[in-house]
Design a protein around this nucleic acid. Structure first.
Length: 502
RNA sequence: GGGCCCCUAGCUCAGUUGGUUAGAGCAACGGACUUUUAAUCCGUGGGUCGUCGGUUCGAGCCCGACGGGGCCUACCA
């Protein structure tokens, strides 16, 4: 037994009335010799178990079974001699509690009325019954505070504004079904992905998040410092170069799901830290990887929705069924602009086409970049179904091998779903000499001031010199996969997205 | 980074051309009620109007700076 000091240490001035009242109730509970935050409460079952087991009870039915159950009070109705409350527990299941004068007695009923608020977590012991109105209930013989809430819950009938949802996700999870569902959707999707890989003999690895040089993507890194080594370190922007080292080492089918960090802007589709899935398969090319990517996403949709054509959280439907289209960059752009565009098209022509379409572009933009601008403007905007856009310009893709037949393009695809890039896949560049040339060119860009260009990773090149089998690789944002499966923006799919301090 | 908009009670929001004491719903407090489902009825309290400064006889409202947020736009997944 411990002695609890029930004397208020100091009245907090300017505390909102409702919070002060709840603090007073806490003190009242402690003063009566009860505990407002007990170490344990007599719980024998769960709300969802009760709902399953007693679903058959008809109105005014009594089970004869005594249970102990606990949950958070979401709704209360205190009348003279019979009180109702609805508790919420588990994945958001609810159950009615009833406290009648007959069963709990006058003292317990009065203390319930005077000490319990919406938002409190309570435990009751009593019988499972169905009320006269047919509501499955536990009618209490005893009740006990499990955790006194000192803050009132947000209005349950109006949506919490977006900022408060993100800043106080705990409150959001209490009051909003969608928040709870999305929190459970992510692990369900992860587990589907891992099952999909397991049955195809892929091995999951974990590669460094703290890297001495950043590579594998074009992005600004977060920089930090190791005190012990007295050196600059980077939070990784991609695991690519390490996963390729794995493939060199003989882990022929490998994947990683982990966080990437990019020191760039945040909006409805970008977060500074985001979950990335990358996978590599030896003796596969970008066509095989497109097949596999489509299978992974379709299997995840089936796992969480039971269908490839499903309803989105905020209305509308998404259809991921069938074989997804594959369209080639240069032919698609050529068709859209009404003239033949190839890697040999003069850059002035591309600039003129961008100007004509009122596309703003960086005056220093290279040939491939302009082609991609035209692609985004004319083609990607109009994609309604999931589509693999294949065969990109070589000059924007330093880690991809040249196309086996078409000059000036590489074997790369981007998967577009609903207008955003859901993933990217390559036939990997495995020739160490060409890879060195490409990375040297990148490091010269970097020296020229391009903060997103890659550094020259000598150890990665050394690994390639041991010989990497012909391979395909894919990178896919897990948050974006959740967006695909829900239609929500990225901040709704991440439980605790980065926000500035209040 | 550029443009536009927002910040009022615990929560969600009104608030007129600058003018008495800043309102509503839910929530809270007191009372009635043994079948309520956002109960109903009677009564009550709750606000540094994001912060700081300015204009004015007078500012939630007008002006400026700062903080936080949203949307659009540019870049990255």
């Amino acid at each position: 037994m411990c002695v609890t000091d029930v004397t208020p240490i100091e009245e907090i001035d300017d505390l909102p009335e409702q919070m002060q009242i709840r603090r007073d109730k806490r003190v009242a509970i402690l003063s009566s010799g009860e505990d407002a935050y007990p170490v344990t409460v007599p719980v024998t079952t769960t709300v969802s178990a009760i709902r399953q087991k007693y679903a058959h009870l008809v109105a005014d039915d009594h089970s004869g079974d005594a249970v102990g159950v606990a949950g958070r009070i979401m709704f209360m109705r205190n009348t003279g001699k019979l009180c109702f409350a609805q508790i919420q527990a588990g994945a958001g299941e609810t159950l009615q509690l009833m406290l009648s004068l007959d069963r709990v007695g006058e003292v317990a009923l009065e203390s319930w009325k005077s000490l319990v608020d919406i938002g409190d977590i309570v435990a009751v012991e009593g019988e499972v019954i169905s009320s006269k109105r047919g509501e499955l209930s536990v009618t209490a013989d005893r009740w006990q505070m499990a955790s006194k809430a000192l803050r009132p819950l947000p209005n349950l009938h109006k949506p919490l504004n977006e900022e408060t949802r993100v800043r106080q996700r705990y409150a959001d999870l209490i009051v909003r079904d969608t928040a709870r569902n999305v929190a459970r959707l992510r692990p369900a999707v992860m587990s589907s992905l891992r099952n999909s890989f397991a049955k195809r003999d892929f091995i999951e690895v974990e590669t460094p998040m703290l890297q001495t040089m950043h590579g594998g993507a074009a992005a600004r890194p977060f920089v930090t410092k190791s005190n012990a080594f007295d050196m600059e370190l980077f939070l990784r922007i991609a695991p690519e170069l390490f996963l390729k080292r794995c493939v060199v080492g003989g882990i022929e089918r490998v994947f990683e799901i982990n966080r990437n960090f990019r020191n760039e802007g945040a909006d409805s589709t970008h977060s500074p830290e985001f979950a990335m899935l990358e996978f590599y398969q030896a003796y596969a090319d970008y066509n095989d990887m497109a097949d596999l990517t489509q299978a992974l996403i379709q299997e995840a949709a089936l796992a969480v929705h039971g269908s490839l054509d499903f309803e989105l959280v905020e209305g509308g439907r998404r259809d991921l069924s069938g074989e997804w289209h594959r369209i080639s960059v240069f032919p698609a752009v050529s068709e859209a602009v009404g003239q033949e565009i190839t890697p040999a098209t003069p850059i002035e022509t591309l600039r003129a086409l961008c100007d004509a379409a009122e596309i703003s572009y960086d005056p220093k933009a290279i040939h491939g970049k302009l082609v991609e601008e035209l692609l985004e403007h004319y083609v990607v905007e109009n994609l309604t179904r999931p589509t693999f856009v294949i065969d990109y310009p070589v000059d924007t893709s330093p880690l991809v091998r040249d196309h086996r037949t078409v000059a000036g393009v590489v074997e790369k695809w981007d998967l577009y779903i609903d207008g955003y890039e859901a993933g990217t896949g390559y036939s990997e560049l495995i020739d160490p000499i060409i890879q060195r040339e490409r990375l040297v060119a990148q490091s010269q860009l970097k020296d020229g001031g391009d903060a997103e260009a890659m550094q020259l990773d000598e150890d990665f090149l050394r690994a390639l010199e041991y010989g990497m089998p012909p391979s395909g690789g894919v990178g896919m944002g897990v948050d974006r996969l959740l967006m695909t499966l829900t239609g929500l923006n990225i901040r709704e799919t991440i439980l605790f997205p980065l926000v500035k301090p209040e």
